[in-house]
Design a protein around this nucleic acid. Structure first.
Ligand code: DGT
Ligand code: MG
Ligand code: MG
Ligand code: ZN
Length: 577
DNA sequence: GCCGTTTTCGGCCCGACTGTTTTCAGTCG
């Protein structure tokens, strides 16, 4: 699938045109096309072959032509030309915060600066400050931008971002005039990783909130601080944006600051179509400028004729059209979750006794849990020998006599390098639930890896494929698996695909959840807990599911014990044929 | 460059903050 590749080409064209100073709406068209192609959800080559490219919204004659050109020749002449015209280094300079295309153009044309290094030197020599429209402060800002860029370290995990957001919110909440205060942006949308932290506060004394904010000890650099918003970097080089609004703007400000940007633009366009205008302060009648809604998000959506759109769906991937038709999916929620399908205990490398896990599960409102320790080959994680596994079975049987939360006897069985499972079938069939996962020998060729997983899926006792791509966000890339094939096989063999809820796994990732749901696969949630507090990570897995539009019926964890067992035994019987 | 349920031309989301500016452009959310 070349979608991402093609999308990147159009993003590059957009950036190069920006630096050239081309028409901003034309640039927007290229950006929009890039976003559309990236989020298309199916292979664009199909549309190309069937001559349907121009049916895709945002793709017209010109861009369709370039897509065809790229698919047939691997090149886009327009892009090649732009690359010759504009040095590569100028594109890199766009990453410097505070430095945009217009200044880059100016600096390049007047000073011949075409690299980050050149920029740094020109700033230090005072050459930037001498340019028309620039001064000492602009040059200093660029130097600060260069420093920030050198220290930036990718995106944050959701868990890290949430903790930091709460830390700052707690300080702001101490201010007397502080009303509602919450994190918006990608945090509220439940994204897998977080670029920066966006905080919204309701107050009738915004200046006091903002003063308090920029005085927080963790704040290192204040980028901007005005009457209604501020932006800072923490000493840990995390960007935090704060927005403060009055009570009657709470809903529209939340809408604005939750985004996504594309959702905002689409919503504002719809408002215009209905003769309203929408901004962060409210929804207004276009002619009279009369305020019609703004206190809650629900009010605003309702006035626009839309169902309430959950934040996780606000990506302009069709949710506005669905909400207009009142056809939004009814997303799975935490209260639907009846159990956790991936817990480790002290039997392997977990730190918690089974009875303690069960007690915590009761507090969480669960009806059952599955204890899935590692299998015998995974020595570093204290994988269970067959003998220990049987001892564990006895303990679970004993506990189940009194436990209010029913305990499933499970295992997270290694998928060995040759695709075999790490216990013999006679043992596997004893398990109430069998997870299979890859934990070692990640370096096989893609072909071998794919065969390895597909072969494991032929074993009828493999009920759930756990953390299928084995990625660790920011640490280990996903295995080079053909997920389309694996998902199709899962559907065929009625194997359930796990959405591992650990914040650095979130595996299946959101796009694969979408693909799996489209193909009719069943999904499961597991926290992969090795410590008691890990059991609270269920929410991160739910974020992936909700972002993929997943409903209760597609999630194994929403089933009561008896139904769960029925599903498992039914799938094993079918797979045995 | 894309788009159209009054349109094939004239719109395209909308506002805050900064710096260098005599009235606003650039950048960002
Ligand atoms: N209307 C409008 N809203 C925007 C625009 N840019 C950003 N926003 C809103 C929607 C965003 O979700 C919100 C916060 O902006 P961010 O740049 O922090 O993006 P976001 O949090 O979505 O993603 P991130 O993880 O930070 O990269 O501000 C824009 O151009 N127009
Ligand atoms: Mg953000
Ligand atoms: Mg932000
Ligand atoms: Zn595992």
């Amino acid at each position: 699938m070349k979608n991402k590749e093609i999308a990147d080409k159009f993003t590059e064209i957009a950036h190069l045109l920006e630096i050239k100073g081309d028409n901003s709406f034309k640039i927007r068209s290229y950006e929009k096309a890039a976003e559309t192609i990236e989020n298309l959800g199916h292979d664009i080559e199909g549309d190309c072959l069937s001559g349907n490219l121009e049916k895709i919204p945002g793709i017209g004659e010109s861009i369709a032509g370039k897509i065809r050109e790229y698919i047939s020749s691997g090149k886009i002449k327009k892009l090649e030309g732009l690359r010759k015209e504009i040095p590569r280094g100028l594109l890199e300079m766009l990453k410097v915060p505070g430095l945009g295309p217009a200044k880059i153009k100016l600096i390049y044309e007047k000073l011949g600066v075409k690299s980050m290094r050149g920029l740094d030197i020109a700033a230090r020599r005072g050459e930037l400050a001498a340019l028309p429209g620039m001064g000492e402060k602009s040059a200093a800002n660029i130097l600060r931008g260069l420093e920030i860029i050198n220290r930036l370290d990718g995106r944050l995990l959701m868990s890290t971002a949430q903790d930091l957001a709460e830390e700052f919110l707690d300080v702001l909440r101490k201010e007397k005039s502080c009303g509602e205060a919450l994190a918006c942006g990608s945090i509220r949308r439940g994204c897998e990783t977080i670029g920066d932290i966006d905080l919204l506060v309701v107050s009738d004394e915004p200046k006091k909130i903002i003063d308090k904010f920029i005085e927080i000890p963790g704040v290192e650099k204040v980028i901007s601080a005005g009457d209604s918003k501020a932006g800072v970097y923490t000493s840990g080089d995390v960007r935090i944006d704060l927005r403060v609004v009055g009570e009657k703007s709470y809903g529209t400000a939340m809408l604005y600051f939750t985004g996504s940007k594309e959702h905002n633009i689409a919503l504002r366009k719809l408002a215009l179509k209905k003769s309203f205008t929408l901004n962060e302060y409210g929804l207004y009648e276009q002619k009279t400028e009369k305020y019609v809604a703004g206190k809650t998000e629900k009010d605003v959506y309702a006035r626009l004729g839309l169902e309430f759109i959950p934040p996780e769906l606000r990506e302009n991937r069709g949710e506005i059209e669905q909400a207009l038709q009142k056809h939004l999916p009814c997303l799975v929620e935490f209260k639907d979750i009846k159990g956790d399908l991936h817990l480790h205990s002290v039997y392997s490398d977990g730190s918690v006794e089974i009875r303690v896990l069960a007690a915590r599960a009761l507090e969480l409102g669960y009806e059952w849990i599955a204890i899935c320790d590692h299998s015998m080959s995974l020595k570093i994680a204290n994988g269970l020998s067959i003998k220990t596994l049987m001892k564990k079975k006895e303990e679970i049987e004993e506990l189940n006599k009194t436990s209010r939360v029913k305990i499933l006897f499970g295992a997270e069985v290694d998928i060995l390098p040759d695709g075999k499972l790490d216990y013999p079938d006679e043992i596997l069939k004893e398990l109430d639930i069998c997870l299979g996962a890859i934990h070692s020998v990640f370096s096989q060729s893609p072909d071998v890896l794919n065969k390895r997983v597909l072969k494991a899926m032929d074993n009828p006792f493999l009920d759930i494929l756990a953390h299928p791509t084995a990625r660790l966000i920011g640490k280990r890339p996903p295995l080079a698996l053909d997920m389309e094939k694996i998902i199709e096989k899962a559907v065929d063999k009625k194997i359930i695909l796990e959405v591992n809820a650990f914040p650095d796994r979130r595996d299946l990732k959101e796009e694969h959840c979408l693909m799996a749901l489209k193909k009719g696969a069943m999904l499961s949630l597991g926290t992969d807990s090795h410590a008691l507090y890990h059991m609270d990570n269920m929410k991160y897995g739910l974020m992936n599911l909700r972002r993929a539009g997943c409903e209760k019926k597609n999630v194994l964890n929403t089933r009561p014990m008896a139904e769960l067992q029925k599903i498992i035994s039914a799938r094993r019987n079918i797979s045995n044929d």
